[in-house]
Design a binder for these strands. Structure first.
Length: 468
DNA sequence: TGAAATGTTGGGGCG
DNA sequence: ACGCCCCAACATTTC
């Protein structure tokens, strides 16, 4: 029986509750060395996500300290760092929670080929390769996927929090988090976004409970209204694994059994996240190539000045601009606005969905490789189970329906009603000018013209397709 | 998880 | 009383 230490390599699982690899390591009774690596995957995160990951690590260091252990920080290519640490400490194995995006898979495959690594489930409810249709195919449509996993997969109860860890006889050296400068690319001002983040396990659980106590009953209808406090906000925590999907699922299931309206819809949204990973697993270039390949021939515009105006929240469509400014200021955007701004960019502005995907990747603190790619392909009309291309959102009508009192637009465009907004914009050091009141910006393109241009491009595209 | 165009119906004003 | 028109309200189809 070896008493060699076990390295628990943390990635997107910054928690001690319901953490299968940590619990398994602890259960061996052997010393545990908690480790985080600033590796090739973390280095290339978008600015906001990288900064937010830094906050998560900072918080998690304290969590680990509270259970009598220490989070070791190392920087470098993952396999090299791990081999070095094994040599230094005599560690026998490395445990981790699986990741499913191509960059992480490549990294982890190389690691596994060079040392004894054991991977656990932790980031998802269902391993993405498991769901199959009756004829053994991968799912392309959400509803059958939902029905299949709902009926066919049991979700175990979450594991209890790990409350202590055996420590090694000697701690290996650790980097200092500040030296990693995780905020280096946050030119748009991390102090502004910092007001909106909820970091760590405790914050995540508070969010979950608050949502289930107060908001879930009205979730089904209220979640479409960006000014209503109707959503859980948990995407931010799920993406860094500050709460496990299993914890969220079980709590949602309990609410459902208590007869709470909206709980079923909440579970469905959680499973959308699973569906995104199912798609990404089966189509690893989901963020690069149109899932319906023929759409590669569509006349998408690349980076262009209209797209720049879109990023800056200066399109002259107040609802779109408000959404883009919420994104820039808070690192998140209400889901309804994500659909609206995505539709506007890809339809009215005829711009390639990958331009929008990249901007979201850089701005979102809840960025997720699978969900972002699926969402953009969905709205552009080239993805699986996608909104048909001709489903063009009209931002004006959408604002009539979902922001009738202009509360949302007033908040993010600043027209004086919500004084906080000015402070946000004052604090953002930006290279382009934000006028305080964007309501008078001339629209890039009149809405019905933009719609027509999009539909014309679509007919032209379809015409060419049939000729092939 | 859309919007606009087109089609249908039925009530009311009015000659 | 009747036919006609208008148009709101709703349903269907088309993009």
């Amino acid at each position: 029986m070896s008493d060699a230490p076990i390295i628990v390599w943390f990635r997107r699982d910054l928690r001690v509750s319901d953490h299968p690899s940590l619990s398994a390591a602890q259960a061996t009774g052997r010393p545990v060395i908690p480790l985080f690596i600033l590796d090739e995957v973390v280095e290339t995160l978008g600015a906001a996500a990288k900064w937010r990951m830094g906050l998560g690590i900072d918080h998690f260091q304290k969590t680990i300290a509270k259970i009598g252990s220490k989070l070791i920080l190392r920087r470098g290519k993952a396999v090299d760092v791990l081999l070095d640490l094994i040599a230094e400490t005599g560690a026998g194995e490395v445990y981790w929670s699986r990741a499913y995006d191509p960059a992480s898979i490549a990294r982890d495959t190389e690691v596994k080929a060079n040392l004894k690594g054991i991977s656990f489930t932790g980031h998802l409810l269902y391993e993405p390769w498991l769901p199959k249709t009756k004829v053994g195919e991968n799912f392309k449509v959400y509803t059958p996927f939902w029905r299949h996993v709902r009926a066919g997969f049991d979700i175990d109860a979450p594991l209890p929090a790990v409350t202590h860890l055996c420590i090694p006889s000697e701690w290996p050296k650790s980097d200092v988090l500040l030296d990693w400068k995780m905020s280096a690319n946050m030119h748009r001002g991390s102090t502004v976004v910092a007001k909106f983040v909820h970091v760590g396990e405790r914050a995540a659980v508070i969010r979950l409970n608050k949502f289930l106590d107060t908001a879930v009953e009205g979730y089904k209808s209220d979640r479409d209204f960006p000014m209503k406090p109707a959503t859980s906000g948990l995407s931010e925590n799920l993406t860094y694994g500050e709460i496990s999907p299993r914890t969220v699922f079980n709590a949602g299931q309990l609410a459902l059994e208590q007869g709470k309206q909206g709980a079923e819809h909440f579970l469905k949204e959680l499973v959308w996240r699973e569906f995104a990973y199912h798609l990404l697993w089966n189509f690893p270039k989901l963020d690069e190539i149109c899932w319906r390949r023929e759409w590669e021939d569509f006349s998408w515009r690349g980076e262009n000045s209209d797209a720049t105006a879109w990023k800056q929240g200066r399109t002259g469509q107040s609802f779109v601009d408000a959404g883009m400014r919420e994104l820039y200021t808070t690192g998140t955007m209400h889901n309804r606005l994500r659909m609206i701004v995505g539709s506007y960019l890809t339809k009215h502005l005829q711009t390639d969905w990958r331009v929008g995907l990249k901007w979201f990747e850089d701005c979102l603190i809840d960025w997720d490789p699978a969900a972002n790619a699926m969402g953009w392909q969905w709205i552009a009309g080239c993805g699986p189970d996608a909104a048909p291309y001709f489903r063009v959102f009209n931002p004006g009508l959408q604002s009539e329906k979902f922001d009738k009192d202009e509360g949302y637009r007033n908040t993010w465009l600043h027209t004086g009603k919500h004084v906080n907004a000015q402070a946000f914009f004052d604090a953002i050091p930006i290279s382009w000018e934000l006028t305080p009141d964007t309501k008078n910006i001339t629209e890039i393109i009149e809405l019905s013209q933009g719609r027509k241009r999009a539909l014309d491009a679509y007919s032209f595209f379809k015409e060419r397709q049939t000729q092939k």
